[in-house]
């Protein structure tokens, strides 16, 4: 499938740096990142531990603030946004998927999704979101009653139920075996294609890059190179 002809980037990061002040030492997580993410596109962020992938993703998602530089979302500078605006931004536009699922253990699959749909503007029904990730028959299970892959798919359903314009996935398969990982990636791929949510996916696993439109390689808090994938594969076609 061909890369969609990108007009305006939905995200544009310019000169983004992030410094963590750890008391006696300062850790430079990002040192001037430049990148774009286009509507409906899927990108994979590849890079070793400590290269700044998660920090970048968190800044894009409004979970963290850049120390310097700008990130614009549809022309709006989120680095200058106030706390309240960031909250509203996350609530309306961003879906997150984390490595460790981060489900609320006291809520069922459906309720975990409902925790988001209740505060979103035009969400899909929780059932619908769960159907989309193939968990229509597990709706009333608690996280402890689900396998890791199922939990991660609930997390994806939770992230997409608000119909986000951006889906940010931080090592969604990191804690899963390959077979389960593929099922999870299929869910993400489907959401990207069917809902058109721009998707950024962090992984350690270089093989996953083949399901993206573009691959951004990161190292030492900087973008090293950007590859365009000519023949985007379906997750089922991946091998690792």
């Amino acid at each position: 499938m061909a890369t969609p002809a990108p007009a305006e980037p939905i995200f544009a990061a310019r000169g983004v740096t992030k410094v963590y002040d750890m008391g006696e030492v300062q850790v430079h997580a990002l040192r001037g990142v430049e990148m774009d993410l286009y509507a409906g596109e899927m990108i994979v962020l590849l890079g070793p531990s400590g290269s700044g992938k998660s920090t970048l993703l968190n800044i894009l998602g409004g979970l963290d603030r850049a120390t310097a530089g700008h990130v614009s979302y549809c022309g709006w500078d989120i680095t200058r946004a106030r706390e309240k605006e960031l909250t509203a931004y996350r609530r309306k536009h961003v879906g997150f998927v984390f490595q460790f699922y981060n489900l609320i253990p006291s809520l069922t699959a459906k309720e975990n999704v409902a925790a988001v749909t209740e505060i979103a503007e035009k969400p899909m029904r929780p059932e619908e979101a769960l159907e989309l990730v193939g968990l229509g028959d597990r709706m009333n299970h608690f996280p402890a009653q689900l396998s890791g892959g199922q939990q991660q798919r609930v997390a994806i359903a939770r992230a997409i139920a608000k119909r986000p314009s951006v889906l940010l996935c931080d090592e969604p398969t990191g804690a899963l075996d390959s077979e389960t990982g593929i099922v999870v990636l299929e869910a993400i791929d489907r959401v990207n294609r069917e809902l058109g949510a721009a998707t950024a996916l962090i992984t350690h696993n270089a093989d996953i890059r083949l399901m993206a439109n573009r691959v951004i390689h990161m190292a030492n808090g900087l973008v090293g190179s950007v590859d365009v994938v000519e023949n985007r594969l379906k997750p089922g076609e991946l091998r690792w």
Binding site: E83, Y89, K92, F96, N102, V116, A120
Partner: peptide, 16 residues
């Protein structure tokens, strides 16, 4: 702490 962070990531306000 962790749960509070998740709720915030979903867009729940501090007040909520």
């Amino acid at each position: 702490r962790g749960q509070i962070a998740i709720l915030k990531a979903f867009g729940y306000t501090n007040a909520a």
